[in-house]
């Protein structure tokens, strides 16, 4: 089993936002659906080791805070926030270094998503769509076994969505990478073979 969740709880200011008593997820492409504020991003951020939580969340028997686990789990934010006075090149180069990205991977990715056209400008000059593509590039850097793409289809144009479908399918076929994708809309992506759907509602996550 790729992911095992037991007695997971997450509170903000003593207010419970997500509670999962038990959940098992195997490899594959998984779709998480839930309305805004349902707890999708909270779950993803916990799994990526970005925020603390109570309970047990094990990715291949490793805690998300383990250094090894962070090599294997990548996260692309729904609404990315980077310092607006640095360039995407500065940020992505550091992420590529930290994730031990293979040589040439960063160049390929920025070229694929069209980030190369503006990545030497300060982030403060980007539109929300441009910023989102930077975040998508960061999600694919290194050799992760799970890539979490939080709301990947918002903010970006149709061409970029097609490119995203293509790279998700290719990465899974070539490296066996699993994906967690989320959306606040019920529509399933047509061009991707989804292995399972999870509903995020009533402060918990259940398999459909």
């Amino acid at each position: 089993m790729m992911l095992e969740v037991n007695q997971f709880r997450k509170k903000y200011n003593q207010h419970l936002v997500l509670e999962i008593s038990e959940l098992r997820i195997s490899e594959g492409i998984h779709w998480f659906v839930g309305k805004n504020g349902s707890g999708k991003s909270t779950f993803f951020k916990s799994l990526a080791g970005i925020i603390p939580f109570e309970g047990s969340l094990l990715f291949q028997n490793m805690s998300p805070h383990d250094q090894k686990c962070k090599f294997l789990v990548n996260y692309s934010e729904a609404e990315p926030k980077y310092p607006d006075f640095v360039t995407a090149k500065d940020i992505l180069t550091f992420i590529a270094y930290a994730k031990k990205a293979p040589s040439g991977q960063l160049a390929d990715l920025v070229s694929h998503f069209g980030v190369v056209d503006y990545w030497e400008n300060n982030i403060g000059t980007y539109s929300s769509g441009m910023l989102k593509k930077v975040s998508l590039v960061s999600g694919f850097l290194g050799r992760p076994q799970l890539i979490i793409l939080d709301e990947p289809f918002i903010l970006v144009d149709a061409t970029s969505i097609d490119k995203l479908y293509e790279i998700v399918a290719r990465t899974q076929a070539e490296h066996g990478t699993s994906f967690f994708l989320s959306s606040h809309q019920d529509l399933l992506p047509e061009k991707l073979k989804i292995d399972s759907v999870f509903i995020v509602d009533n402060k918990t996550i259940v398999k459909q």
């Binding site: 990526a48 080791g49 970005i50 925020i51 250094q67 090894k68 686990c69 962070k70 090599f71 789990v73 990548n74 996260y75 934010e77 990315p80 926030k81 980077y82 310092p83 992420i95 930290a98 994730k99 975040s135 960061s138």
Partner: peptide, 8 residues
Amino acid sequence: LAVFNNLP
């Protein structure tokens, strides 16, 4: 740079 918490 919260996303840097995801870096190993």
